[in-house]
Nucleic acid binder design. Structure first.
Length: 483
DNA sequence: TCTGGGGTCCTAGGACCC
DNA sequence: TCTGGGGTCCTAGGACCC
């Protein structure tokens, strides 16, 4: 823990609504609500005038309308908010090179990184006032609230205490007593579920939390959360300010005005979402291995289905086909209110780097053209030279056409003895690679051990639990086009 | 008046490997 | 005929944040 209050938390006041009021003078001084304006919309930001009527973030727009019918209801204009946010972040970076944005309207600034030493409370108050003025002039009049202290936790909580347009600097050494009288929910990470559990243990304020033994806390809320809460309760927080945090996932989702039940319509929507995700991956020079489809039922229960590819991709067709298959595996009877497509397990290099541009890989791997494309859930035994090195947890990558498929081998017991079978598991990859069977020792063993058997008479049983293939509707050759 | 869209992190079970 | 423990990866779900 540092000795001076050199961590700032800057929070723009009612950001989206303030930008709208800045750009439309007629809205100034009036209640403004920004967010989803459709039937199922929710409020992103309410101006302070609208908050007087009880309108809050995350409230359904329908409820907001009933509380404040005369407010202006506006959809979001993210491009404008992003632009304005960048202007604000630039002001912070002029103050210190170490700025950690948390969202468009919030960031930590570490003053220690700019070489400032032995800052007093008064020093920091002056710096905060200057920063607020700089933000105001750079944004055409937006106000910010600033909190400062010896840690992120204290700075973050402090910025909330004098909103809007305030500055609160917590003197070093007073942190634990500063927190003690507050509700536990002021600690970021303590939401309704955790608060409920804590309250059952008699904990409502941070002072209560300070009294609770760590092992008891861990029993209530789990290991990771318990350990960190036990420390945060006494303001023990040495988390550094980190700029440039890595993106972990990219996703697109949409809530429909009415629940949708038509599979072909949902598939088409999923395709478009996959393309938007791919576009954003490409723009960010990212690619990922895990494709996830999210569905939300009429009763708001939410399900995810995911599939991890052998290698990362940013190809819209690959993402779309995996998503389509995952959606096919999802229960949508009764209709769904939301569909989402996401990609995670991100790499900061793209598929082509791995599969076609790596000299080292070229030596061991070669593209293989095979005469037939896979039939759906094809089963059978194939000799060693067609079995290629596994890049997937289970099974083998085996080539067909110009696509790359992952097949899962399993042993099925038949009256004639054990037979190796496989299910086409993943026709979504875009490259076929083959290695010398000698370099895939398990593969050649399989080839030597398994009795020969044609595709026709091998049982499909064990292949049936592999995810359904969409090879039938997607010739593998088309998958590879464009590479 | 029902509950957005974009994320992050954690947990838990099963498979698999050593 | 029984019995390990640890580590990693994958999948699904949940809490939380702005």
């Amino acid at each position: 823990m540092r000795a001076d209050p050199s961590i700032l938390h800057v929070d723009l006041d009612a950001f989206f609504a303030a930008v709208e009021q800045r750009d439309k003078p007629s809205l100034r001084g009036k209640p403004v609500v920004v967010g989803g304006i459709g039937l199922r919309g929710v409020v992103s930001t309410a101006s302070y005038e609208a908050r007087k009527y009880g309108v809050r973030s995350a409230m359904s727009t329908a409820e907001a309308r009933s509380r404040c019918p005369h407010a202006a209801y506006l959809g979001t204009r993210f491009e404008v908010y992003r632009e304005t946010s960048q202007a604000v972040m630039a002001q912070m970076r002029a103050l210190s090179p170490l700025v950690e944005p948390l969202s468009l309207d919030e960031a930590f600034v570490d003053l220690a990184a700019s070489g400032l030493r032995d800052l007093t409370v008064e020093d920091v108050e002056a710096i905060a006032a200057d920063l607020k003025a700089a933000i105001r002039s750079a944004t055409g009049g937006l106000t910010a609230s600033v909190g400062a202290g010896t840690s992120k936790l204290i700075a973050k909580i402090a910025s909330d205490l004098d909103k809007p347009d305030g500055v609160v600097v917590v003197p070093p050494g007073t942190e634990a007593e500063f927190l003690a009288p507050m509700q536990v929910t002021v600690i970021p990470g303590v939401g309704p579920a955790t608060a409920q559990r804590l309250s059952m243990a008699g904990v409502r304020t941070v002072a209560d939390l300070q009294q609770l033994a760590e092992d008891e806390l861990i029993r209530q809320v789990g290991s990771a959360h318990g350990t960190s809460l036990h420390r945060l309760a006494v303001a023990a927080d040495d988390r550094p300010v980190v700029s440039d945090r890595e993106t972990k996932s990219v996703s697109v989702e949409d809530t429909f005005e009415t629940d949708l039940i038509d599979r072909s319509l949902l598939s088409a929507i999923g395709d478009r979402m996959a393309h938007r995700v791919a576009e954003r991956l490409q723009k960010a020079q990212l690619s990922g291995r895990t494709v996830t489809v999210k569905t939300r039922m009429h009763d708001f229960t939410t399900h995810t289905r995911s599939f991890t590819l052998a290698g990362p991709t940013d190809d819209p067709r690959v993402i779309a086909r995996v998503a389509r298959r995952l959606l096919d595996d999802s229960d949508i009877s009764g209709g769904i209110r939301l569909l989402g497509v996401g990609v995670s397990s991100l790499a900061d290099w793209i598929q082509d780097d791995l599969f076609t541009e790596s000299e080292a890989d070229e030596a061991a791997l070669e593209l293989v053209d095979l005469p037939e494309r896979p039939r759906e859930r094809q089963t059978g035994y194939y000799p060693g030279q067609d079995v290629v090195h596994s890049t997937h947890g289970q099974g083998w990558v085996w080539g067909t056409g110009r696509g790359l498929v992952t097949v899962r081998f399993e042993t099925a017991e038949t009256p004639a003895g054990p037979v190796r079978t496989f299910g086409v598991d993943d026709p979504e990859l875009t490259r076929l690679q083959r290695v010398d069977p000698d370099e895939a020792p398990d593969a050649s063993e399989e080839a030597a051990d398994a009795p020969a058997s044609s595709a026709a008479d091998a049982p499909a049983s064990s292949a049936a639990d592999a995810p359904a293939s969409s090879a039938g509707d997607a010739p593998a050759s088309s998958v590879a086009e464009g590479h």
